[in-house]
Design a protein around this nucleic acid. Structure first.
Length: 470
DNA sequence: TCAACTCGCACCTTTGAACAGG
DNA sequence: ACCTGTTCAAAGGTGCGAGTTG
């Protein structure tokens, strides 16, 4: 495994040759990110995690909570999260499983959620688990609250970025590292499709306590079981509802703990699976776009969709990561309970001790998870990589003046203290169609192009910020 | 016709202000 | 005056189920 670290100038100006290998000792620090409540996440992932998205915004559950180590105590860091499309498909729930229902819809305005504590010294981030409890997902492309906008029936996975920077302005030129936890992939939905997921949510989410079987809400329950199961023909799996016991005892009540920010419990955390990435979008681009893609036509389409706007040179080095990504995908819902889930888990755990490296195991991961799954559609390898994502981002940056989302600065500099990088400003996320201020946004970054940072180990255009704008 | 989506509801937890006591 | 603990109401998060939309 290698440490994937990247310094990226969030600049999408003219492509420049990547500075290969210039390892930066400073950057070589072993930053480690651990997903809290990984067992809970896994239990959802094995079934096929679904996250409700609503117009006003809905929190995630399980929510993203991570632990960090290896940071420089006195150095300031900014922690961000964004959602990356898992693939280029739209799904539909049919007969107890997810099926591809066509190509993905055009990406909604991409936003990055900035942890409210950012920027904060490494000591702050390391002293206790960092929760993204307040992060909300929405399907409202006109959202003015800075929530992360997703498409329903599409599969995504959160991506965590740790950036060493004193403030948002320096982020662009800062070193950042990205971590991905395969078990956090999910399908965005406006209503739960898989009753097993519903049950898991109810069992673990304290806010849904009233829906628990053992709950006191007999009234609601009484009316719900009979009618519900019949009416919703698409949710025949009502058995789970009553068999409260299907959830593993381990996490039966762990959710609440999660809310409490309980002390890190090793048993609940997962480190190894963490994939640290060094984004070299160029590489990815290239590797992807030109790399052997043997995927289905549909897949190709997807990629084209993302690649269409920009093709950039890149070191081939990145490619492997993408494959890793692929392998890492959570087990498909369809494979619930299948052995694949277990294998995935074990493989990650084997790497628990080396977070700073790229999970090679991913590559070796059995492609078995392919069943139609929201998060892991049949497609196989190479398919799950982030090429699409990166491409998309790149594409954005490629736009005239291209670059990153700069409005992020607005909120920041303004009254808002980085709370939601993505978006608060009404003006920042204007209706998708006619992005009036886009020009402004794009030009801003262009100003700082080129050399951002001296200790760049690799020149990367990873468009982290481009995600915050569209 | 039907899948996807929206909305209002009841139930629940969380949060923070107000207050009392040491 | 300050700190701590308790109480309570408001705010907000849930999934459900009926209705709406395309």
């Amino acid at each position: 495994m290698q440490s994937l670290r990247d310094t990226k100038p969030n600049f999408s100006g003219p492509v420049q040759p990547p500075l290969t290998g210039v390892p930066d000792a400073y950057l070589q620090g072993n930053i480690r990110m651990t997903l809290e409540d990984s067992q809970l996440w896994k239990s959802f992932s094995e079934i096929g995690t679904e996250m409700i998205i609503t117009k006003p915004g809905r929190r995630m559950f399980p929510h993203c909570k991570i632990s960090l180590s290896g940071l420089i105590p006195c150095a300031k860091y900014i922690l961000l999260v964004d959602m990356v499309p898992e693939d280029g498909f739209r799904y539909k729930w049919n007969k107890e499983k997810w099926e591809v229902a066509g190509k993905a819809e055009p990406q909604p305005p991409c936003r990055t959620y900035l942890h409210p504590d950012s920027p904060a010294p490494g000591s702050h981030w390391m002293k206790q688990p960092v929760s993204f409890l307040k992060l909300k997902l929405t399907n409202n492309t006109l959202d003015q609250h800075g929530h992360i906008i997703l498409h329903s029936m599409h599969c995504y996975h959160p991506r965590f970025h740790i950036v060493q920077a004193d403030d948002l302005f320096s982020v662009r030129w800062s070193v950042f590292q990205t971590f991905i936890f395969p078990e956090t992939s999910f399908t965005a939905v406006t209503a739960y499709q898989n009753t097993k997921i519903t049950k898991l949510k109810i069992d673990h989410n304290p806010f849904a306590k009233g829906f628990r079987d053992e709950g006191t809400n007999s009234k609601r329950r009484a009316s719900r079981n009979p009618a519900c199961s019949e009416k919703k023909s698409k949710k025949p799996n009502t058995e789970n509802r009553d068999t409260d016991k299907d959830s593993p005892p381990d996490f039966r009540h762990s959710s609440y703990d999660g809310f409490q920010e309980e002390p890190a419990d090793p048993s609940k955390r997962k480190e190894g699976e963490v994939k640290e990435e060094r984004y070299s979008p160029w590489a990815s681009e290239r590797g992807h776009a030109h790399g052997g893609r043997t995927e289905s036509p549909a897949e190709a389409d997807t990629r084209d969709m993302y690649n269409a706007e920009q093709l950039v040179p890149a070191p081939a080095s990145y490619q492997p990561y993408r494959f890793h990504e692929h392998g890492k995908s959570p087990s498909p819902p369809s494979s619930v309970g299948s052995s694949s889930g277990g294998s995935v888990r074990s493989s990650f755990e084997s790497r628990i001790h080396d977070v700073a490296t790229v999970p090679e195991h991913e590559a070796s991961k059995p492609p078995a998870e392919q069943g139609p799954s929201p998060c892991v559609p049949q497609p196989p390898p190479g398919h799950q990589d982030y090429a699409g994502v990166l491409n998309m981002a790149m594409a954005q940056t490629a736009k005239p003046g291209g670059v990153l989302g700069h409005h992020i600065y607005t909120p920041y500099s303004a009254e808002q203290s980085l709370g939601q990088w993505s978006g608060p400003g009404p003006a920042q996320y204007p209706p998708p169609p006619p992005p009036h201020h886009l020009p402004t946004d794009y030009t801003t970054p262009a100003v700082h192009h080129s050399y951002h940072h001296g200790n760049v180990a690799e020149w990367s255009q990873y468009p982290l910020f481009s995600y915050s704008c569209w």
